[in-house]
Amino acid sequence: MNTENPSGVRINPATARASQEIRAAVPPQKKSNATNTNHAIFSLNDVSVSYGDFIAVSKVNMEIPSHSITAFIGPSGCGKSTLIRSLNRTNDLIPGAKVGGKIMYEGIDLYASDSDAVEVRRRIGMVFQKPNPFPKSIYDNVAFGPRVNYRQSKSELDGIVESSLKSAALWDEVKNRLKESALGLSGGQQQRLCIARSLAVNPDVILMDEPCSALDPIATMKIEDLMIELAEKYTIVIVTHNMQQASRVASYTAFFSTEVNPDNDRRTGQLVEFDDTRNIFLNPTDPRTEAYVTGRVG
């Protein structure tokens, strides 16, 4: 465990008023894991996403490091969900959605003509705001991904289901009822099942769009612990409305805000600041970030 002393950090006077809670929760600076180099897994270059003639988020430039947790925070309508959905081409399915600029994933253009959306989504999984288990058994939920992606024997599938459920810290709770409907699980268990389900296809990245906003604090805590554990092996990008959550789990935080276009009174999201989580919460450079994280705005 890294125990760098946080008191050495310069804190500007305005931020010093930040709620004690948040500051207490900011984790000690995480050094990169010795085994993994935290190279940039995503590079966003002037990325804009629009629906028809409505620009949801514009001109985002950022590099998301691998094997760590990156949080997107910001007020409603700032385009953070839109942006995360464009990282695995989930937006492709919305009529009129367009991605401008370049999103490079491991050096490959995600939206190049020979990049297949299905393969992209296999490598870059997604967990949604509301737990969305299929109305099937627990086993079939986890086996769904492997079944659609490869042909597998029963024993291989059994192994994948067990290891995925173990990785999602759900195995002990469900091992005796794998054949029962997933809809009988509690909300928190359903969300961990959805995480297990995405792990079963062996992705590199897991995107999480407000994964805890429908859950109670105890279920939220379990998911957060799980995320921190998973970050050893996977890259995690999470959208959250909960600043404490970002400060508790994320190594890096991106703050988004909205700009009102004076011509048509429409709002466009933009990236304001992207840095180590500590810097975002304790030492932000942009006054808008500071206003948001100290609770004066939003």
Binding site: V118, R121, R122, F128, N132, P135, N149, R197, A200
Partner: peptide, 25 residues
């Protein structure tokens, strides 16, 4: 619910597999 389609596609299912295995049942 479209959340079922999203869930299926996010696991790397093709659109046809999504229709056949989640929407139709």
């Amino acid at each position: 619910p479209s959340s079922l389609r999203d869930g299926s596609l996010a696991l790397g299912a093709t659109q046809w597999q999504t229709v056949w295995r989640t929407v139709m049942p």
